[in-house]
Amino acid sequence: MMTQDQIALDERPAGAGLSHLLDVDALGADQITAILDAARTFQQLAARPIKKVPTLRGRTVCNLFFEDSTRTRVSFEIAAKRLSADVLNFSAKGSSVSKGESLKDTALTLQAMGVDAIVVRHHAAGAPHQLTRWVDAHVLNAGDGRHQHPTQALLDLFTIREHFGQLDGLHVAVIGDVLHSRVARSLVQGLRTMSAGVTVVGPPTLLPLAVGQWDVDVSHDLDPVLGKADVVYLLRVQHERMSEQFIPSVREYARLWGMDGRRLRRLSEHAVIMHPGPMNRGVELTADVADAPNALIARQVANGVAVRMSCLYLMLGGERA
């Protein structure tokens, strides 16, 4: 029976009831919108004298990091703590994982400890999916191999929407090492779900073979793409790509696909620059581009906490089925 204090199920935000956050592909436009909308509230909270709310009191969130990523871990940790969750950090280096304990055994240990959510970063694609088979806790993917990094994509979508007021109809150029990038996979799916247009740009060796089936435009030439882009999203290029014959040299990459002052001037007036960090200045972008007034790179970092709070808030409430 519905009582005065209860909320009707259909009044819940669309993101509620999401058991896990594994990939952006699984999110509908209404769910993404709900996450971004709630993130706006959490962003306002950050400006208040007491930044903490009691919402997740009594809930335990475990940051399970098999791969170093201080910035992502700290961002999730702040997000959970501002929601008053108990946070425990479980890193592969300081735990029994390095002694050969399997992912499954680690999962069963956390299950036995009764954690409510596991934020997992793993070098193996699919590890978060596999965790969901072994634990009852909510699983949030904080980056798995080259597969997905959904909260990065969501904070990017939030940052773009914050700047332009909308996502629908924008055109985003995603430039660089799409092949090895979990950020690109997640972001492109999110942008397409939100009806933004995407052009992926890079040498064929750094684009997936089947990129033609991705529902995006593809260009190997950066310059013609610049004029029509509302957002120029630069991906990190790792130096080991050269020894693996993906590109002959950093210098050649920077010349053909790097963002420099000359290309910056060819952008339309309202266009913005984004980068998921950490940046290789001088490779995918020059220092003057990174520090340009239309670079939203610092906003991306700042918005990370609010978006992650939003995901935790929408996922962890209510009784599990």
Binding site: D25, A125, G126, D144, G145, R146, H147, Q148, R182, R185, P208, L209, A210, V211, Q213, W214
Partner: peptide, 10 residues
């Protein structure tokens, strides 16, 4: 290797 390996990041 194909669209599925792209999507799964393998």
């Amino acid at each position: 290797e194909g669209i599925q390996s792209d999507l799964l990041g393998l």
